[in-house]
Design a protein around this nucleic acid. Structure first.
Lengths: 181, 181
DNA sequence: GTCTATATAGCGATAGAC
DNA sequence: GTCTATCGCTATATAGAC
């Protein structure tokens, strides 16, 4: 686990990219192998089944989210602002892992759905101390979910109607006031 | 259009149900025909292709959403409260149509994605007069998106971590105060 | 560890009987 | 208007050479 083979990571990267850019349906083992520059047999040496391939994505997500929660709790602008700002996808590794996992979940993968629920729970635990009550926590979590949802729908290429720049700043200010006063 | 054949509606209901309960991947023409109690040939008489079947769902959604917007603007508790409350899926026809369309959109259907964008735009137009600025409008829309996103993930059967009852009332109060003051 | 070749199964769609 | 039968394609997965 401490020294993952390079080819394995390359395959996982390719699978993730296809999931994000072309959707779950296009993310076949054939297409993944081609994009990763290996044969189908080569891919199947590292991931014995499609299920194993999907588990690889989920595993990657779990690893990234722990770092993210740590960064969140120590962020200068505050956990809530950091959390909302990072909810709009900037193509960071963690954003890509979440988006890919969301695609798998929508495709019917139960492990992927469970993983996303787990991620959400970890975030909620980190945000809870900054909200004055449960409704405030719900508000922050739902705005974040909404941002991800719009990213997930807009398919990675077409920009969704997601607030950016000054609009994002205004939204964060609005939320922070609502959950404090 | 005024007198749709019964079998056609039955097929559409079955397709919608499978999309919601088992995901886009399971919603094959074979499975749909079986669930609707017709043969594949019989299904193909009403819907000549899978694309036509998907278009049927989108059409149904478009019809339902116009009624919903009308109900929203005349709701006693106000448009925002009505909108947020109806964003948590209660298995109403419109909720089912949205969820099914969302599954198709995630599966890569462009018409489905376009339809969802259109629905969101209609809602935003109805909410805009009740928000003091664009950030407030963003807030309401994103909370609604977040509610739908959680419904979409929890697969229609397992209840997601969505506020209900008193928690929902508190959330609505919080949002209404934030977008007014 | 990576390859080619192939088995197996399921999908969307067609043809034509009733 | 609904059926059965079947074609053509593509997906996952296996077998075995190198």
């Amino acid at each position: 686990m401490s020294r993952p083979p390079l080819a394995r990571e390359k395959v996982l990267d390719a699978f993730e990219a296809i999931l994000i850019d072309e959707g779950e349906r296009a993310a076949t083992m054939d297409a993944t192998a081609r994009a990763a520059g290996v044969s189908k047999g080569g891919l199947l040496y590292h991931f014995a089944s499609k299920e194993a391939l999907e588990a690889g994505i989920v595993e990657r997500l779990d690893a990234l989210v722990d770092d993210d929660v740590a960064a969140m709790t120590t962020a200068e602008e505050g956990a809530v602002a950091y959390f909302l700002r990072s909810s709009v996808m900037e193509n960071d590794p963690i954003d890509r892992a979440i988006l890919a996992t969301a695609r798998l979940a929508q495709g019917g993968s139960t492990p992927a759905s469970d993983a996303l629920r787990g991620v959400r729970e970890k975030w909620a635990r980190a945000i809870r101390p900054h909200a004055k009550d449960e409704a405030s926590l719900d508000l922050v979590m739902l705005v974040s979910d909404g941002l991800y949802f719009n990213n997930a729908l807009s398919g990675g290429s077409i920009p969704g109607p997601v607030p950016r720049g000054p609009a994002m700043d205004a939204l964060i200010a609005l939320v922070e006031r609502a959950i404090r006063d």
